[in-house]
Design a protein around this nucleic acid. Structure first.
Lengths: 245, 245
DNA sequence: CAATTCAAGATCGTATACAATTTTTAGCCA
DNA sequence: TGGCTAAAAATTGTATACGATCTTGAATTG
């Protein structure tokens, strides 16, 4: 008997305070659309985002597209190389470790704040979010499930009502999505939803200690779900390996 | 018997890994120059940065200036209002609390990492930095002293060799500079240099526990050095107060 | 005189054109 | 064939022009 949560409303709440310091306008629209596409793993790390191509797709001039790409670069989702253009970012193994170390420090503290501040309505909101996660998992829609899974962490940061932390969490979740696209190894993604359920319970009980410690375990668990071993460059040929291609 | 530290070299180390996701070029140059000016309190919060004006000063077209201003906006130093332009950011009292809460969480952890990783050369570098801070204080150059004081925290983050944390610290130090410009109340800034000296000693001894706890106390102390009471709007007239002007 | 209206000026938002640089491709030679 | 060179194509970097929006200040009106 839980209210269904439309994808649209979830999208809204996620973007209500977004990462980008752009005024409302077309550049921001393009930014948000590209961000969604990246977070849903519709655009793979390393992919080139040519200005003309993006402009063609969204019907905007290069001026606007450039502003959007630069905003995405500042958020860490895209990297811009001088005279070469913009590419979906490819976090290194080292960066992956760093991001999850940072999450393990910050998000538990945020979870504590959230548990101390959460309202009944917000508990219901989280519950609905969890249901949507389950639904996406059951439907086998991994892209959406991943987006929602990240959204859960962002919603917690919003509940904590701490704009500085919320901004950091958004940035880290974004980068985590890229990291997962590159390095995820674990087969069972169900366990993740389990952690979120345990968090929910802690929030419902206003148990700040539990929320903090569950969140910390959860993030350490996510970290350990990555395959972050340095791979031997076993390219198809020696020249490929040496070119770093 | 300590090597003098030139302002130039300090500037270099601070900008070697900067906050901005811009490729090398004129936009980045303008960004860094504006950043220095803001951090030295040469440009006051709320000041308007008109595109033509900035372009005139640095000899660049609006295209380039806009990219620089947007980068500064993403770093939190500038806020852009649609159809109105860019202004030096004016953090609210609430944001000030949040920034120092975040610093109190993150920087002690960073100090611990730094203490575990620091090399002898880096200890010397910090010592030289401290000397420069003292020199600026003795010379009564508050702008420079403040810049160096922030630079000390950034150098620690660089020593910790953790890019994700270092980026966060840079962003927080930048915003702290604006916050201090707006809300600093304490008369004796000498105590600050004292805290930095205590940190130095902990680093020299590779005492991670001490570094972490001293850094935490230091940041809490800085936080308490701000006057963050909500002021009554005692404008010159009722209409001024109600207009929020 | 205060408040309002409206036009002139200033400033920002965006498209487009051209220059600089990179990437691709074709040609050449060993 | 493989590798080098150079011209052509494609892409990004930047300046500028024009339309849209905001700001300013003078004229108008109650």
């Amino acid at each position: 008997m839980t209210k269904p949560v439309s994808a649209a409303s979830l999208g809204q709440t996620s973007s209500l305070h977004h990462l980008f310091a752009l005024p409302p306008g077309r550049a921001l629209d393009i930014c948000l659309k590209l961000q969604s596409a990246i977070l849903e793993h519709k655009l793979a790390p390393g992919l080139k985002l040519a200005e003309d191509e993006v402009g063609e797709i969204y019907g905007a001039s290069r001026t606007v597209v450039r502003a959007a790409l630069q905003a995405l670069a500042h958020s860490g989702l895209v990297s811009i190389e001088k005279n070469r253009g913009a590419f979906i970012a490819k976090p290194t193994i080292r960066e992956a470790h760093e991001v999850f170390q940072a999450r393990a420090l910050i998000e538990p503290a945020v979870a504590r704040l959230a548990a101390e501040a959460i309202t009944d309505d917000q508990v219901e909101g989280l519950r609905a979010h969890l249901d949507a996660e389950h639904a996406a998992l059951d439907a086998g829609d991994m892209g959406k499930a991943l987006l929602l899974s990240g959204g859960f962490h962002i919603e917690i940061a919003d509940i904590a009502d701490h704009k500085v932390f919320a901004r950091m969490v958004r940035a880290m979740i974004s980068r985590s999505s890229l990291i997962i696209a590159l390095y995820w190894k674990r087969s069972d993604t169900a366990c993740e939803s389990h952690s979120h359920h345990a968090l929910m319970t802690a929030f419902a009980n206003r148990d700040a200690d539990a929320a903090e410690s569950i969140q910390k375990s959860h993030i350490i668990d996510l970290h350990s779900g990555l395959d972050l071993r340095e791979k031997q460059t076993h390219g198809s040929s020696l020249s490929d390996a040496l070119k770093g291609k």
